[in-house]
Design a protein around this nucleic acid. Structure first.
Lengths: 238, 238
DNA sequence: TGCCGACTGGAACGTTGTTCCAGCAGTCCC
DNA sequence: GGGACTGCTGGAACAACGTTCCAGTCGGCA
């Protein structure tokens, strides 16, 4: 059967960079950042660890490719016909949702040795920057504004990733869900020393009922407000 | 000599949690996050790996303690007699400087399994929150404002840590310093595809001459401006 | 003096990223 | 058609890691 020119596959389908990266993302999603092992990956691909190194130079490149595979689709959107503010919001939310769905991105991003200018986040920076320009921010302040937005996005993403993982670890241990985890943290906050942690105790209730996503957009709006308010010279001093 | 009650030390000075943590910080500072090894640590303390486990439950606790040892001193400052804005700025700068001096903090923070409410950053959150209250932000928006500030701080810290490490890696490889590294990145940015990276190319020059610290404070000021501008309801929509 | 618990440090275990290399399937050239 | 050559495979092996284990040593107390 089908011997005409070439059997389409050698065993199942040939190993390829894309197949490897896809399997890595799957593994990261199901088992977490600690579960991505060259051996586990090899087993899932029905091969040995050595074969993977023919397509990928090492674990760092693999992680970077996995992040790219997860972030890139969120940048496909179209910005035309919206205000810059809306474009930035939806861009930020795209990254937020991607990292929320794949928490390992948040944790992994920080410790990847970034080759100059090839970070997976450069494209996000570019997209943000264009909208900052569209906001008519003076040239000298554009870099600051775009950097602040990106830093905030990555900061929240990192925090969220850590929280998600903590919640999952807690869930595995205590058989509870995310809401129960938030509840546990809120309760722990309420029991802190009233002198040392007055504020934290005050907002413990807000933690219990807060919505990460809405909170995140609110932060974006804070920065956007700051950017547009200080448009004259790019920064504000009281 | 000095046999009266107790020879003050058994061999040199007895192993202790503080001595271990101090040695860990030293090791992290000199060799980087990858250099902290129980074996290297044991060698530096003139003992074996097993002895360390008597004082410390594992690597995670050791890292958390190291972070705490580096961050805690920055929280010693006194806020009385300054405006809330200034207090927040100096607090944020303290954390920024600490992480800048010890880049491993930025990278390590993200991947520490955080036991609910015992993160080393909780105290920072508390200090920020008090100043947010002093800013007379309405109660419902206090959590958002403090979270946004902390996320931004951690985001910049993480970015900065990654950059510092990239610069150091580059320096080790090419025998250059940080300025040369920024120059290299700026040059790389300038050579990007003009269609795809219009904005990044535009701001490449600003990258070369930018000051991380000033940039960071400018971002803080952006958020502060947003907070005080939207004080009525805590958020702004155009 | 003899014992006991606090503490030490070296050996050993299991797992990781990475390297090495003998072998396979095709393709090209003679 | 048959050998060399290339692109690719996958299992074995290596060094290094975090962690555990345990035979010891020490100081203070009975």
């Amino acid at each position: 059967m089908a011997s005409r020119k070439s059997r389409p596959e050698r065993r199942q389908e040939p190993l390829s960079r894309e197949r490897i990266v896809a399997a890595a993302v799957e593994l990261l999603d199901t088992v977490g950042e600690g579960g991505l092992t060259f051996r586990a990956l090899a087993e899932r691909l029905a091969t040995g660890p050595g074969a993977i190194y023919w397509h990928v130079t090492g674990k760092n490149e693999l992680l970077a490719a996995a992040i790219d595979a997860v972030i890139a689709p969120t940048l496909a959107g179209d910005d035309t016909g919206t205000t810059p503010q809306e474009a930035i919001r939806s861009l930020a939310l795209g990254v937020f949702d991607a990292i929320d769905a794949h928490p390992w991105v948040g944790t992994t991003l920080a410790q990847l040795p970034r080759t100059p200018g090839k970070s997976p986040m450069l494209r996000v920076f570019e997209r943000i920057g264009r909208q900052v320009q569209a906001l008519r921010v003076p040239e000298a302040a554009q870099f600051t504004a775009a950097s602040a937005l990106l830093s905030y996005i990555l900061g929240v993403a990192g925090q969220n990733a850590a929280n998600t993982r903590a919640a999952q670890a807690n869930a595995d241990r205590a058989n509870t869900d995310r809401a129960a985890f938030l509840d546990a943290v809120a309760t722990a906050w309420r029991e802190l020393d009233p002198d040392q942690y007055r504020f934290t105790r005050d907002v413990a209730g807000q933690l219990r009922e807060h919505d990460d996503r809405a909170e995140f957009v609110a932060g974006i709006d804070l920065i956007l407000a700051g950017i547009t308010a200080g448009r004259a010279d790019g920064r504000t001093r009281p």
